[in-house]
Simulated scan of single mutants.
Amino acid sequence: MKHSVLIATTLLTFGFTQAQDLFTSEIPSVILNNFNLKYPKARDVEWERKGTNYEVEFETNWNKDHEIWYSATGEIVKHKEDISKKELPEKIQNKINIDFKGYYINDVERVVAYNKTHYKMDVNALLKDNWEIVIDQNGEILSKNRN
Results as ranks from 00 to 15, higher is better:
T13I: 13
I7Y: 00
N63K: 15
I105D: 10
Y54P: 05
K64A: 08
D107H: 15
V123M: 08
N106P: 02
E132T: 13
H66K: 09
V111L: 12
A19N: 07
V45M: 10
R110L: 13
N147D: 15
N124H: 00
I68W: 02
E132V: 14
E55V: 09
E59F: 12
G102D: 05
T13A: 05
K144Y: 04
N33E: 07
Q137V: 12
K41W: 10
N124V: 14
V77Y: 01
V108I: 09
L37P: 06
E48T: 12
I135A: 01
L32T: 03
E46Q: 10
I7T: 05
A19Y: 09
D99I: 07
V108F: 07
N138P: 01
S84D: 10
T60Y: 01
N61I: 13
Q20C: 06
I96Q: 05
L37Q: 15
R110C: 11
N147Q: 13
E140G: 00
S84K: 08
E48K: 15
Y70L: 04
K80M: 01
S25E: 11
T52I: 13
L12V: 10
G102N: 09
I31M: 04
F100G: 11
I7E: 00
W62C: 05
Q18K: 12
K86C: 01
R110T: 09
E67P: 00
W69Y: 13
E140D: 11
D122P: 05
H3L: 10
Q20M: 07
G102E: 11
I76N: 02
Y104E: 15
Y103G: 05
T9D: 04
Y70F: 08
D99G: 08
K86M: 06
L12K: 03
D65S: 14
L127A: 09
K101S: 11
Y103R: 12
V45G: 02
A8W: 07
K85I: 06
Q18R: 06
T117I: 15
T24E: 15
K50N: 11
G15K: 05
E87D: 11
W69A: 01
L126S: 03
L88S: 01
N94T: 14
G102W: 06
E140H: 06
T73P: 04
E87R: 15
T60V: 13
L37V: 10
K101A: 11
I135L: 04
W62T: 09
D136Q: 11
T13N: 04
N106T: 15
K64V: 14
V30W: 03
N138T: 13
L127F: 12
N130M: 06
K80L: 06
E59N: 13
